[in-house]
Design a protein around this nucleic acid. Structure first.
Length: 289
DNA sequence: CACCCCACCTGCGTGC
DNA sequence: TGCACGCAGGTGGGGT
C-alpha cells in the first residue's frame, strides 16, 4: 500500500500525537504478520516505555523509545496505523496489534493482507532490515551523478531501477510511474542509457512529486488511510497510474499498461518515448564496498 | 553479479 | 447467485 509519501504522512500524524506518551498494554491477534516479534517480547519491552521520536527510513517507520530500543514497522501493502479511542477502534477488522497509551488512547496496526512487519530491537542490536534500505530521495547524498553511477552499465528497465529500494528508498509502483511520466522517459529505457541531464530531470521530478503528494496527504487508490483514518488527495493528480485506456492529460493519447517484473506500469506512449539509442553515460562509478 | 519470478495473504471487480 | 480469475501502494528468497 503505502509508498514514501503515505508513510511520511503517517509518521507526522503519529509523531504529533504519540511522542512523549508511554505505552502500556500490548495485545495481538492469533494470525501472524509476515514478520513479527513475539507478543511476550513486545509486551515486556514496550510496557511502561516512553516514545521519544517517530522516524522514517524509506517505507519503514521507527519508533524510538526512551530506553534506547526501536520498534520497526513496515506497512506492507495494506497496513494501517491508527490512533484513537479504544471504543471507536474496538470493532475494526484485521487488527493484528493493539497498544494502549497512558492518555487513554490506543494505537492499532490493521493489515488485511498481513504483509506488514512489526519488529522490536533492543538497544545496541543492529536493525538488520535497514541494512538493505537505500538512500532517501530527499537526502543531499542523492544527486544526479550518484544515480547515473548506480545505473551505469545496467540494462534493466528504468522503471525497475526506480522500484529497487536498495538504491532509492521509498518509491513504489504509483510514484515510479508518475515520475517517469513527468520526466518524459519511457519505463522500458535501460537504466544505464540515461544521460546526466536525464537523471537531473528524474531527480527533480521525484522530489517535486513526492513533496506534492505529502502535501496532499498521500494517494488513496484503495486502502490507504492516515493515522486519523482520513484518505489522501493525490489520487486526483495522478497523470498515468491506473489510467489505462484513458486519454493522456497532456496530449490525449490513450494511456497504456504494460507489465514489468510482474507489476503494472502505466505510461503515455507519446509523451514517453523509448530511447533505443543514446549515449552511455560515462560518469565514474563509485565502488560499492 | 544482475535480474526476474513468485510466494506471502485477503478482498474486490468482472465476466461467464 | 455462484464461481473462477485477475488484480492490488511491497518485499525478499530462490532460481536463471
Amino acid at each position: 500500500m503505502p509508498e514514501l509519501p503515505e508513510v511520511e504522512v503517517i509518521r507526522r500524524g503519529l509523531a504529533a500525537r504519540l511522542v512523549g506518551r508511554r505505552f502500556l498494554k500490548v495485545s495481538a491477534s492469533d494470525k501472524p504478520l509476515r514478520q513479527q516479534s513475539p507478543l511476550s517480547f513486545l509486551q515486556s519491552r514496550l510496557a511502561g516505555n516512553r516514545l521519544t521520536a517517530v522516524k522514517r527510513k524509506g517505507k519503514y517507520l521507527l519508533f524510538i523509545l526512551e530506553d534506547g530500543s526501536t520498534l520497526l514497522v513496515h506497512l506492507g501493502m495494506t497496513g494501517r496505523l491508527m490512533v484513537g479511542e479504544p471504543g471507536a477502534l474496538a470493532t475494526l477488522p484485521h487488527v493484528h496489534l493493539r497498544v494502549s497509551l497512558d492518555n487513554g488512547l490506543e494505537l492499532v496496526f490493521q493489515d488485511v493482507r498481513r504483509f506488514g512487519r512489526v519488529l522490536l530491537f533492543e538497544p545496541g542490536v543492529p536493525i538488520a532490515p535497514l541494512a538493505q534500505v537505500g538512500r532517501d530521495p530527499f537526502s543531499r547524498a542523492v544527486t544526479a551523478a550518484w544515480l547515473a553511477g548506480e545505473a551505469r552499465g545496467r540494462l534493466r528497465p528504468l522503471k525497475n531501477f526506480l522500484l529497487d529500494g536498495r538504491i532509492l528508498a521509498g518509491l513504489g509502483n504509483i510514484y515510479a510511474c508518475e515520475i517517469l511520466f513527468a520526466a518524459g522517459l519511457h519505463p522500458e529505457t535501460p537504466a544505464g542509457r540515461l544521460s546526466l541531464k536525464d537523471w537531473e530531470r528524474v531527480l527533480k521530478e521525484t522530489r517535486r512529486i513526492l513533496a506534492k503528494a505529502i502535501r496532499r496527504g498521500g494517494t488513496t487508490v484503495n486502502d490507504y488511510l492516515n493515522s486519523q483514518g482520513e484518505t489522501g488527495l493525490f489520487q486526483f493528480e495522478l497523470m498515468v497510474y491506473g489510467r489505462a485506456g484513458e486519454p493522456c492529460r497532456v496530449c490525449g493519447t490513450p494511456i497504456r499498461r504494460l507489465v514489468q517484473a510482474g507489476r503494472s506500469t502505466f505510461f503515455c506512449p507519446a509523451c514517453q518515448k523509448l530511447k533505443r539509442r543514446g549515449r552511455q553515460n560515462i560518469t565514474t562509478k563509485t565502488p560499492r564496498h
